[in-house]
Design a protein around this nucleic acid. Sequence first.
DNA 1: CAGGTTTTTTACCAATTGGTAAAGCGACGA
DNA 2: TCGTCGCTTTACCAATTGGTAAAAAACCTG
Lengths: 221, 221
Amino acid sequence: MAEDGSRALADRPRSRIQTRNRRRILDAALDVFSQHGFRGATLDQIAAQAGMSKPNVLYYFDSKDAIHVTLLNALMAEWLAPLDALDASADPLSALMDYVHRKLEMSFEMPRESRLFAGEILQGAPRMAPHLDSALAPLFVEKCALIRGWSAAGLIAPVDPEHLIYSIWAVTQHYADFEAQVAALTPEPDGARARATAHVDTLFRRLLAPAGDAAQTGAPD
Amino acid sequence: MAEDGSRALADRPRSRIQTRNRRRILDAALDVFSQHGFRGATLDQIAAQAGMSKPNVLYYFDSKDAIHVTLLNALMAEWLAPLDALDASADPLSALMDYVHRKLEMSFEMPRESRLFAGEILQGAPRMAPHLDSALAPLFVEKCALIRGWSAAGLIAPVDPEHLIYSIWAVTQHYADFEAQVAALTPEPDGARARATAHVDTLFRRLLAPAGDAAQTGAPD
DNA sequence: CAGGTTTTTTACCAATTGGTAAAGCGACGA
DNA sequence: TCGTCGCTTTACCAATTGGTAAAAAACCTG
């Protein structure tokens, strides 16, 4: 039915044990793939992490590739949910700042997912290009149009919507994708997250605050 | 002498042919490593790209690992040069904006280097941690102090220096590291770079412009 | 051109890795 | 009790990959 082409087990798992083991494998694979990249990850590592034998892993998924693709597909929606939730219900600035904060929160709460996607894009998105075009692109242009409208109406300062979104992605995901670097340069483990939040808030608030709005955030310390 | 530990050829190449071939190999390795990551790259690929046989590559470098480390070390200084050049000679805002522009330019001109570092950091910087501590960290804290001074003196708006630098890195390198995604979402190949430059300029100018400064950049369109 | 040194090639290897075959095992219904 | 079906393990394989040995070729120097 789906283009999955799985010959071992259908897309929808039936038994209780199938759902449990598939979930275990995917969680283990998320660990391993996000840490070592696709080619750096081995089925043995995934199997060990999942607590089962390699052939058993291949009983649930046709191939290493299938695991990776399944992971990517499964997490795509979750990863894009905040952008999807960006709409005209609240006032524009709040909506955008909410998006920024939610995205930043996700970087701290789901670093594995962030790195998984980052690694995939970094290598040219060999297995995600179709999804980029089919799932992400339409959402992206839709939200760009929305932001462009706000900007034109003067509800937020003039901005380039596409590059605004790029900036939000870049700044927020940086804390997950480059965690090793941040950790090496900002040793303190406690205040770091709060300071990151404050800074990112300031950055985009100053960018987006409509002209003439005196609500310039003060010194972050 | 150095901790390189190379047993095949000393660090400093002697003959003309050595320098030429080592350079070839490193250039080929930059291609392959930046595209596939460390573990995804193979010596055969590097050898093919360099136009020589695999054992010949290993005549010039002790191991795949040695090539990678040599590359990282060789490019570190170049990659950090813009930050190193950030000083108090010009006025603070211009100095910072110069840094931003130079960094963005590097992302467009040297995407391979950007991706090489990104991949290394993404995987926890296994072979770069020492350099992060010894080379990057001192420079980082030095420049943070400089920026903090400017901020305290009111020469630029109040900012968190450390996270400001993270933001600059994130936003600029995004165009190299996530090029595949940007290309999928922003098809036009021509105006993209100019628009990126304009947006990044606006973003950091609005963040850093001292309070009361009327120099708010207008619409980027 | 002789003789040593540097560079390159050919042939090879051991370890790893993605994947398969087939037998064993366990539960459940007839 | 038997057979069947879903799950797991053992044993195995072919291809790839980082790396080596050693001979051959090219190069340099006197």
